[in-house]
Design a protein around this nucleic acid. Sequence first.
DNA 1: TATTGTTATACTCTATAACTATA
DNA 2: TATAGTTATAGAGTATAACAATA
Lengths: 155, 155
Amino acid sequence: MIAPQTAPAGPAGLHNPLDALLGYQLRRASTVMMAHLGAALAETGLTPTEASILLLIDANPACTQSDLGRALAIKRANMVPLMSGLLKRGAVERAPVDGRSQALSITANGQALVADVRNRIHRHEQCFQGQFDAKALDAMIAGLQLIRATVQDEA
Amino acid sequence: MIAPQTAPAGPAGLHNPLDALLGYQLRRASTVMMAHLGAALAETGLTPTEASILLLIDANPACTQSDLGRALAIKRANMVPLMSGLLKRGAVERAPVDGRSQALSITANGQALVADVRNRIHRHEQCFQGQFDAKALDAMIAGLQLIRATVQDEA
DNA sequence: TATTGTTATACTCTATAACTATA
DNA sequence: TATAGTTATAGAGTATAACAATA
């Protein structure tokens, strides 16, 4: 049972019983890191999602749009505008595999962008990973994966 | 430096270099827990955000709408439809403090809803907290708060 | 029959700007 | 001048349904 709380709130803010909840802390921490990542990527003109797609294509040459959607839990329909932005930008190219699939790859021009994205993400991650020692960081990552695995993964 | 990856993806899916990133794992884990919480609350007709507001008012009688917004990082403008739903439902009532502030409280009728919400959130949290021993859970919560505190808190 | 890529569309969340009335 | 509450609105992000072409 979660005990009802009647203690008065301090001058700094309200008493927040949600602070003890894993889901609440997860959501707030995620929002903080996403905002920080968005700022770190702003100069590239990419959103965190677009940057993720870029890194995933780079690590999986010849993958398809549907593959990416499955890996990142993005619906096929929502992949379309995401991909068309990266294609128009000339960072990604497509080659037909069969009549319906297209193999994705980073263009020669896109390589520099990928490297820049990698550096920016790395610096961003260091801001937060630096708060933990190696053991604690591994425990955090493992814990988060455990949470993800608790329920069958999203679409 | 994040090493470039060239290993082939297994048949189960793509190779995902984002798996080593705290921000990525945070986002995915948060999405999983939010979806699970949404399902746990569905029968109450409340969203996770509305349920959070309810618990926060219950823990902070006579708080204002703006107080809640600050505690939950919800902009004043976005609090309006949230509050009006809870008011129309008869779970929350308002009493004027001065000419501009209104003190919020849970109605007599709303108490049962708060209790139900508390139980549902508790069962939901147990699904995930149950994966950790007490020490690991404390470390997770503390780690998430540390991440939040790394950057000055959101609006 | 299932899958790829696509269009169109709707719904939720979040963000900004502006207004009023109060302090 | 700053704050509480409100309105209107714009922009993301995400969801479903449907379609054509292909496997």
